[in-house]
Amino acid sequence: MARIIVVTSGKGGVGKTTTSAAIAMGLAKAGHKTAVIDFDVGLRNLDLILGCERRVVYDFINVINGEASLNQALIRDKNCNLLYILPASQTRDKDALTEEGVGRVLDELSKDFEYIVCDSPAGIEKGANLALYFADDAFVVTNPEVSSVRDSDRMLGILSSKSRRAERNEDPIKEYLLLTRYDADRVKSGEMLSLEDVQEILSLELLGIIPESKSVLSASNAGIPVILDEKSEAGQAYADVVARYLGEKRPHRFIDGKHGFLRRLFGGRK
């Protein structure tokens, strides 16, 4: 049985797709067969960030509608043969995503994969709700600003009440915080919320802080997930995130910017 991870936020542009690509690659690099699914019907861009846009023939909706098999639609990543991408459709209507159909595809993938990463669209509408419905773990991607924190809080409410686990009275989805696009200088100057500010509102287990970094844009332009750029801080931060998720203890870094780490361990509920 695969573990299903949803990367979600409520707000758009916070780094969900960047994160989905990075952690899916990280998990695959660590030896786990991983599939990453783009739930953002109409705004396909996971395949761009993973540099496989020219190999897209069939998509998620085709599989749901039975117009293609899963094997026909899955694209094997060029950098790691344990990573597969199921792209979103750019042309179809969002209504093509159905709970029954998504459940069927996830069930089939579960037989063959260890991790399934669901890249959620923004908002709290159908696509986002379906992306999280079947999840076991949630990576809540949040930027250090009030509106993003508020949207994440809203998303957490939905995670705890509208998921399959909630409906079946099973153990709740495990929720993790990923603070992204974190700019230590702007935090210091008070332009952005600090980690403490964010945690005061969300109080979640912190999986990592991803610094704002130019390397993210160049990585996505090159179609290579930033986690493969070992020199970049964002890449290193994502590598930490994957290691922590897999159970390794690593101190948090990049909180104070360029100079040194702060070894305070945040995150509440263990």
């Binding site: 508020r150 809080d153 809203r154 957490l156 409410g157 939905i158 705890s160 009440s161 709740p172 109080s203």
Partner: peptide, 8 residues
């Protein structure tokens, strides 16, 4: 015992 989030 669970947190009550925005919208709940």
């Amino acid at each position: 015992t669970q947190p009550i989030r925005s919208g709940q």
